[in-house]
């Protein structure tokens, strides 16, 4: 499937900021199920933009710009060609030993209730892949998809306790449980070309990958209850949302920050009217 992504993230500061530095994880890597036809990241301020890679192997851009700035817009325009790989990831460099993905992070810690949930989900299942599918089903069923109950800082515990959350929260819960039952697991951020034809989206997508002996890394999308397909565009991975976040930034001064996101993920060649959409606040903090 050919998928086009137009993604614009705009930060507006109530008072001009003196300086901004950001780490952008907005550029995908190719893998066997994903060919990058074209990809551009543009920033509308004068500043330095350095391309690099992080420890997880993600392509990153480091942006630093001096103020006064009232607004910054990050624009992504890209096109990829995808293939269904039954969720299996290959042709992607693995920089880290898989054991690093066994640790829990503050966003994926478990309570006894969550541990019990994970234990119940896999009880009587021996095969690792079957266990992960059992978990996938359990998380998908247990947690209601709801865009209003959580934020980017919500932990697996909080989302599980509420029983509600977005793709990020479901991914965290799945990862927490997978690690708890012994599978190395990681967080993936990316995009989803929706099957219902809706192309304007409020936020990007997230799912999980877990390591299965003999198969390697396999994707699990608990928000959709299945494995990632040719509709998924994989952009970055990490321990959790924080280490795979599309944008992490800090700024000096500037008062309150408002964020607007416009995201259009459209299967090609269909073209539709593109208009602005407001999304939830993304991760960003003030400094100084």
């Amino acid at each position: 499937m050919r998928i086009r992504i137009d993604h614009e993230t705009r930060y507006h500061y109530d008072a001009p900021v003196r300086g901004v530095s950001q780490v952008l994880r907005l550029k995908p890597r190719p893998h066997d199920g994903q060919h990058i036809v074209s990809w551009r990241v543009d920033v509308d301020v004068d500043g330095r933009l350095r391309e690099s890679e992080d420890a997880f192997g993600n392509r990153i851009l480091r942006l630093s710009a001096e103020g006064p700035l009232e607004e910054i817009t990050l624009s992504v325009a890209g096109e990829v060609e995808t293939q269904d790989t039954a969720g299996m990831l290959s042709g992607q460099p693995e920089r880290l030993p898989p054991e690093v993905y066994t640790r829990q992070t503050p966003l994926t810690e478990l309570t006894p209730a969550l541990e019990a949930f994970a234990g119940d989900a896999v009880s009587g299942v021996d095969d690792r892949l079957d266990q992960l599918h059992a978990l996938l089903g359990a998380v998908h069923q247990q947690v209601v998809y709801d865009t209003r109950s959580t934020t980017v800082a919500t932990s697996a515990i909080e989302a599980f306790t509420q029983g509600r959350g977005v793709c990020q929260d479901l991914a965290h819960i799945f990862i927490a449980c997978a690690r708890h039952v012994g599978a190395p697991a990681r967080y993936v951020s990316g995009h989803l070309a929706r099957a219902d034809g809706v192309i304007e989206q409020e936020a990007s997508h997230a799912w999980a990958e877990a390591l299965v002996p003999g198969l390697g890394w396999v994707g699990f999308d608990p928000a959709n209850g299945g494995c990632p397909s040719e509709r998924h565009v994989r952009v970055a991975c990490g321990f959790d949302y924080l280490s795979a976040a599309p944008v992490r930034g800090s700024r000096i001064g500037g008062g309150a920050e408002r964020l607007s996101v416009r995201l259009v993920v459209s299967p090609q060649p269909m073209m539709q009217n593109q208009s602005a959409a407001l999304g939830p606040a993304q991760l960003s903090q003030a400094q100084g």
Partner: peptide, 11 residues
């Protein structure tokens, strides 16, 4: 590698 003090950035 599973240790929380192991900082992957240092690789």
């Amino acid at each position: 590698y599973g240790n929380s003090q192991y900082r992957v950035e240092m690789t």
